[in-house]
Simulated assay, not measured.
Amino acid sequence: MTNFRNSELTKRKFIKLIASAPVIASPFLGSAAVAQEIAMQEQDAVRHNISSFRAVDWREHFDTLGEGVIVADTVSRALHFWTADNGAGVGGYKLYPTSVPISEELTRRGYTSVIKKVEGPTWTPTPSMRERDPSLPRVVPAGPKNPLGTHALYLSWQYYRIHGTHDTRKIGRKASDGCIGLYNEMIADLYSRVPVGMRVRVI
């Protein structure tokens, strides 16, 4: 989907470039040079919109792999999942892009664990959410309007979840009130692999 704001910026860049471009004998060469400059600037803008992915090793956060672990990275907006230890200190590995909390105030970091798994979760706004927005419903049932998507992993921290989202625009962005969000198909995949009790670290 075209981003209107980025489109307007591109038009302004084009006009600016046309106005400042040197006169070149061949109109074709002139337009090609301008087009190349615009493409380079757009690529630079895209790079700045991509979160800075970083590799993570479970050994940086846990003493043992055990039945598997999760590291949710709020900086690079990715969830790292390692499956059960095969006896050699090595397990399988999966990586999922995520949404993250919209502010530092809403971001909680540290160690927690999965205490419950729910397919087709209902959503109940927290007291602080209702305080900020009294118009919020008390409960949203499972379905396409539910902010928790199709599956949810409940953490030992009250109100915190790893869950899906029907709004795919949120993935890769600061878009939640504290939870970690995944595409619905990806939370379904993670849900099928994660047992209750799995250890989680949010960094």
Rank of each mutant, 00 (worst) to 15 (best):
M1A: 14
N3M: 00
R5D: 11
R5A: 09
N6D: 13
F14W: 11
I15Y: 10
I15R: 10
I15C: 03
I15S: 04
L17Q: 12
S20A: 15
S20V: 00
S26W: 02
L29S: 15
L29A: 15
A32D: 13
A32S: 14
A33D: 07
A33R: 10
Q36T: 09
E37P: 00
Q41A: 14
E42N: 13
Q43Y: 04
D44W: 02
V46M: 09
R47A: 15
H48A: 14
R54M: 03
D57P: 00
R59G: 02
D63W: 01
L65A: 06
E67N: 14
V69K: 15
I70P: 09
A72P: 03
A72K: 04
T74N: 05
T74L: 13
V75H: 08
V75Y: 06
R77P: 06
A78Q: 12
L79W: 04
H80Q: 01
H80E: 02
H80S: 02
F81I: 02
F81E: 05
W82L: 11
W82A: 09
W82K: 10
D85V: 04
N86W: 01
N86D: 15
V90A: 07
G92F: 01
Y93D: 04
L95S: 07
L95V: 07
Y96E: 07
T98M: 08
V100D: 03
P101C: 12
P101G: 11
I102F: 03
S103V: 03
E105V: 08
S113D: 05
I115V: 15
K116Q: 15
K117W: 03
K117M: 11
V118I: 15
E119R: 14
E119N: 09
T122Q: 12
T122M: 07
T124Y: 08
P125V: 02
S128L: 03
M129K: 02
R130T: 04
P134Y: 03
S135Y: 01
L136I: 02
P137F: 06
P137V: 11
R138F: 05
R138C: 00
P141Q: 07
P141K: 11
A142E: 13
A142Q: 09
A142W: 11
G143K: 05
P144W: 03
N146E: 08
N146I: 01
L148D: 11
G149I: 06
H151Q: 04
A152P: 12
A152C: 09
L153D: 10
L153H: 03
Y154T: 08
S156G: 07
W157C: 11
Q158I: 10
Q158V: 12
Q158W: 07
R161D: 05
H163K: 10
G164K: 10
T168R: 15
R169W: 10
R173K: 15
K174V: 00
S176N: 01
G178R: 05
C179Y: 04
C179N: 05
I180C: 11
G181C: 05
E185L: 01
I187M: 06
I187D: 10
S192F: 05
R193V: 00
V194Y: 12
V194R: 09
V194N: 07
V196C: 03
M198P: 09
V200H: 06
I203H: 01
